[in-house]
């Protein structure tokens, strides 16, 4: 494992920890999109079907279980937890996320490496992950002010795929391995969707000001 891959995994893990911390410490999920959280849960469930068929390493298996478990736990909290669910910004979180699911699935049926259940679900998870942040970004834009932990959460979640791209470039040169082009293109799209957010995140950091997204 190279440093970029590790940095990617760690920022991904940190983003989840920050989100859990926010929900646990403030007993609130304000500013968090349930739609995005549901999409992520679906992404992990679809991608890690290989838990049952391929073993890579203890590290991989543990991380996969952590990603699946934490995303389901967050969805459960936002839907079921007596106190947490009260703070959910339902009226702002109206993105039609089923269209993203349907679109990603159709694309996976058309563009995949092999016509097998696992490969189609893998491609589906990659496409869906690329766009899964959209409901969250829309929610942040609508609510205007972004609280500190929510801002950090989105930042780390965006940074993770950018590190993966560096990891793919690194592996291309060191291992003569070209990662699947489906992930390259989706990863670039995914990172590009954060460009706007990154810009305002760095500006607020530079000016030591509260993060605000223009409407």
């Amino acid at each position: 494992m190279n440093i970029f891959r590790l940095a990617g995994d760690l920022t991904h893990l940190i983003s989840i920890l920050v989100l859990l911390l926010k929900i646990y410490a403030t007993k609130s999920c304000s500013g968090i999109s349930l739609k995005t959280q549901e999409l992520y849960a679906l992404v992990f469930l679809a991608r890690y079907l290989d838990l049952f068929t391929d073993f890579v390493s203890v590290y991989n298996t543990v991380m996969k279980l952590v990603f699946i478990g934490s995303s389901l736990a967050i969805v459960w909290c936002m839907r079921m937890h007596r106190i947490v669910k009260r703070s959910y910004n339902r009226e702002l979180d109206t993105f039609r996320h089923y269209f993203l699911v349907a679109g990603s699935f159709v694309l996976a049926l058309v563009v995949h490496e092999k016509f097998t259940l696992q490969e189609i679900f893998w491609a589906f998870s990659i496409y869906l992950e690329a766009v899964a942040i959209l409901p969250q970004l829309v929610l942040l834009q609508r609510s205007g002010n972004v609280d500190n932990l929510t801002g950090q959460y989105v930042f780390f979640l965006g940074a993770y795929r950018a590190f993966y791209i560096l990891n793919w470039i690194y592996r291309y040169f060191t291992e003569q391995r070209f990662g699947r082009w489906i992930s390259w293109i989706s990863g670039l799209v995914q990172t590009a969707l954060y460009a706007d957010f990154f810009y305002y995140y760095f500006m607020s950091w530079k000016n030591n000001a509260k993060l605000q997204l223009p409407a």
């Binding site: 991989n60 991380m63 996969k64 990603f67 291309y172 003569q176 070209f178 990662g179 699947r180 992930s183």
Partner: peptide
């Protein structure tokens, strides 16, 4: 040419 597949990634 470079081989494909990064099945070891998350």
């Amino acid at each position: 040419g470079p081989k494909s597949s990064h099945k070891d990634e998350l």
